[in-house]
Design a protein around this nucleic acid. Sequence first.
DNA 1: AATGAATGAGGCTTCATTCAT
DNA 2: AATGAATGAAGCCTCATTCAT
Lengths: 207, 207, 207, 207
Amino acid sequence: MSHHGAPVTTSELMLQIAIRSFADRGYEATSMRQIAQDVGVKPASLYNHYPAKEDLLWAIVEDAITELEARQDAAVEVDVTPLRALRTFVRVHVRYHATHAQEARIVNARIRVLSSERYARVLDFRKRYERRLRDLLVGGDADGSFDLVDVKTTTFAILQMGMAISDWYRPDGELDPEELCDRYERHALRLIGVRVPDEPALERLAE
Amino acid sequence: MSHHGAPVTTSELMLQIAIRSFADRGYEATSMRQIAQDVGVKPASLYNHYPAKEDLLWAIVEDAITELEARQDAAVEVDVTPLRALRTFVRVHVRYHATHAQEARIVNARIRVLSSERYARVLDFRKRYERRLRDLLVGGDADGSFDLVDVKTTTFAILQMGMAISDWYRPDGELDPEELCDRYERHALRLIGVRVPDEPALERLAE
Amino acid sequence: MSHHGAPVTTSELMLQIAIRSFADRGYEATSMRQIAQDVGVKPASLYNHYPAKEDLLWAIVEDAITELEARQDAAVEVDVTPLRALRTFVRVHVRYHATHAQEARIVNARIRVLSSERYARVLDFRKRYERRLRDLLVGGDADGSFDLVDVKTTTFAILQMGMAISDWYRPDGELDPEELCDRYERHALRLIGVRVPDEPALERLAE
Amino acid sequence: MSHHGAPVTTSELMLQIAIRSFADRGYEATSMRQIAQDVGVKPASLYNHYPAKEDLLWAIVEDAITELEARQDAAVEVDVTPLRALRTFVRVHVRYHATHAQEARIVNARIRVLSSERYARVLDFRKRYERRLRDLLVGGDADGSFDLVDVKTTTFAILQMGMAISDWYRPDGELDPEELCDRYERHALRLIGVRVPDEPALERLAE
DNA sequence: AATGAATGAGGCTTCATTCAT
DNA sequence: AATGAATGAAGCCTCATTCAT
């Protein structure tokens, strides 16, 4: 697959068009006809690549949740402090929602249309992802690294202020993704009750 | 009008059913047939009360944004510190999103279907609402009351961690709305860099 | 009834509004809602005056065909020449279609919606009316007064060039109804092959 | 295209069914369901061929006005007397309204449903067509060939007695189209004040 | 892999009409 | 005589999808 480059296959083009349309208009408000027209193809042709509209959605959603989870997995370091782990989590979280805003908006939207099996997989992902953060918070709180208001709402606050980025962030704005990570990393540190006066943000990702 | 009581008129019942359905399934995924059926009426009857599906949506949206803004207006105190003003704003914000979760989800969803004039009114509301918080933050930062990471992302963070409450909060959960306000008030204080070690939360609203 | 004056009763007003709307937009394209709105009343109120939409139409049509036939009846003179009778017929015919253009357009439109009994009455009227002209033509042809191309197409030509007036005639145009009668009287004379070089048109109707 | 033969494509069949129904019942009184049923297809299939009901109507109307104008254009001869030009115009006019009675009825009906652009094209056609006859009449009157009662009503009379043919003419009646042309040619000659005692009608069109 | 055409289901909405008040 | 509300039927049209080519 050619992630983020120009689409090379018709299937990839269809997916990209669908991503844009689902993100901008919503899944229900997007018709197969519109997608086909934007792709430059007749509606029937879509079905040579994806058996149903839901499969287009699923291709997007599955890729997105897999990708996000993989990124968190890849960022995990062994024998690291709760603080550093939390900071890393936040940066990966924020970075994804800034650089993959369209996909994120699709995943975070109400996606009840998915088959129950697929829907369950999304819910599982959400549960695991949320638990990953919660466990970090609980760990840091337990060993005295953090000073939380409470676990539940702090988890939600960190998660959701990051997710909301996909609703307003524009890549051509004043902040590049790494600067955004810096800001939200500091917000997170404050939410967990950690004062790190002059410590710089974690090293940024090379572009 | 019978706000939040049992609906007494057919029009109010229709509105309540629509609120639930738009919030749960989304506007596009909700059909007039479904609403009619849930109301216990034939589809044509809906049109005796609301001339079009969009008007149902607008009745909900207009009421919600008017109500939220009115609550913030009503909470404004004169000659008050930036800190107290901010804390009040957050409590009103959080309280509304907890107690009016369905309406809030509808308003915060992508509502491009609205006529351009109505859509503009929503955008205006959002701009004013956001500016209200931003001005509070800017004021507190200027007089040294606050110590912000930055204005823009702090504004978004406070706003959106509150808005997200409407996605997960359940009235029958462990936290009642005022307790929720307490928590998010403390989150907000941390985000704006204010340590108020033992100060209690602002007085709560009588139920 | 108050023919042509301002409508004095609600029923008459409804009829007048219906005449205008049926004539301008057509029967099928006119809704009871529109009529009610133009009258300044709610749709249900129409039914206090006319039991159905078709009855509104019938009230118009019956009045029109009765009126037109009555006018022809009233114009009949005893012991008169075929020529004078024909000229009188044409003038009454033309005059009606100029002064009652809206009603005429309704009657002459496709009015299949009428119940079969009513539709039959319209067809009867048309047959009688056409026969009246045809008999005049046949009579004049038989005694040598006229020199027809043929009976059938001449009948249609005279009838229809008059009926078509209701499609274009405007009361505020350059010709008043009596001048119009003059012109069409002369057209008819030519069609029946009668040269009446300098004879003036028949005396006109007092306004 | 298979003009007037049996329809060979589904689109053509749809058009023919629509022509019959619009002509017989009227545009507003004809539903897409009815057309589909008469064609032997489901309603949705109509939209694979014509994007909207109005487009069906327009396909008919545009073809008709184009065709009629083309016929008049094709019949124009150079260096011809006003009389011969007029006789030719009338024959083409009458012939079209006899052989294309259904289309003519549709075009001559009130077709306000058309988009304003299309409606304007119909009005333009009507204006040009009427002017074509009027110019003939004016020309013949100016050089003394004709002796008109007046230009305006003579134009309307000739035009409309021909148009009305589409309302009553039946191809299986006693007169074939060319005989009908003969009759109306003679009517027209009389209306323009020309006596051509024994001159035969213009040569007829080979079938 | 692409598509023209068909379709069952359903979308929103309007219609004429009724009926209790 | 007027009307608010309800409704069965039907209006036009779009939807996702299928299938033969």
